[in-house]
Amino acid sequence: MLSLHKLKIFFTVAEEGSISNAAERLYLTQAAVSQHIHDLEAALGVRLFERHAQGVRLSPAGERLREYAQQILRLASLAESELTEVSNLKEGEVRLGVTPGAAVHLLTEWLLAFHERFPHLKATVESSITPTLVSKILKRQMDFALVEGEVKPAPLCW
């Protein structure tokens, strides 16, 4: 099976044309890079590089994989940045639960700060008692809750 880690190593070797230069760029040992390339070649059942005195050159199979690897790594990077950087989201919703007491003291200030920081995101608010909010959090029907009082530990159900 292809892993992103091995694809990144493969792609770096392909770009550098040298295992030692790729190892330096990736902060890995030359032996580790060679082993990853060997494992990848064994898993795929093809030679990806032709070795020569000046370094390595892609084989025909390596050329095909390089094209796929470039697309896969680009898409993985794009997915990671879009999903992990909330500030870049253009749309979405945060589901917030709040107990009546917490609403009076915390909600207005929190909503103003949230809207200022994430103007493209929608915040929906539900007011209820603590056990109901905790239950919704555990069922993933709510993203987070502002509650007052103690919350009894519940068994993790995810």
Rank of each mutant, 00 (worst) to 15 (best):
R47A: 07
E16K: 11
L44C: 09
A32S: 12
E63V: 00
G45Q: 10
A31R: 12
Q71K: 12
S127Q: 11
N88T: 12
E148W: 09
A32I: 00
S18A: 05
M142K: 03
M142G: 02
A79M: 11
N88P: 00
I19T: 00
A53P: 10
G55Q: 04
E116G: 13
F144T: 09
D39S: 06
L73M: 02
S127V: 13
T99S: 14
Y68S: 11
E150D: 12
Q30C: 00
T99P: 10
P131I: 05
A102I: 10
E41R: 07
A123M: 08
V56E: 04
N21L: 01
I129G: 02
A43C: 05
G92R: 05
R74N: 09
L133I: 06
S34T: 00
R51S: 11
Q30L: 00
L73T: 03
I72V: 14
H115Q: 15
L40G: 00
E63M: 02
F114I: 03
H120Q: 14
L65I: 05
P100T: 13
F49I: 01
V94L: 08
L107I: 13
R74I: 06
L96W: 08
D39Q: 09
S81G: 05
E126N: 03
T99M: 12
L65P: 06
N21E: 08
L26V: 10
P100I: 12
V94M: 07
E15L: 13
L107Y: 09
K122I: 14
A113M: 14
P131A: 05
A69F: 02
A14M: 01
K90L: 12
A79S: 13
A53V: 13
S59G: 04
E82M: 15
E80T: 02
E126H: 04
P100R: 07
E91R: 15
V134M: 13
Q30S: 01
V98S: 09
R51I: 11
P100F: 10
G92T: 03
R140H: 13
A69D: 01
V134A: 15
R117M: 10
S34E: 08
E15M: 14
P119C: 09
G101Y: 15
G101W: 14
A113K: 15
P60Q: 02
P119M: 10
A23S: 02
K152M: 14
E50K: 06
H115D: 10
V98M: 10
I72P: 01
T130F: 06
V134K: 11
G97L: 08
L26P: 11
A31C: 04
A76M: 03
A61I: 02
Y27L: 14
A69M: 03
R25Y: 01
P131V: 04
L83Y: 07
E15G: 12
A145T: 10
E126K: 05
E16C: 05
V125Y: 07
Q70F: 14
A61N: 12
Q35N: 14
S81Q: 14
V98I: 15
E67W: 07
H52Y: 12
H105V: 15
V151W: 07
E15R: 12
E116A: 15
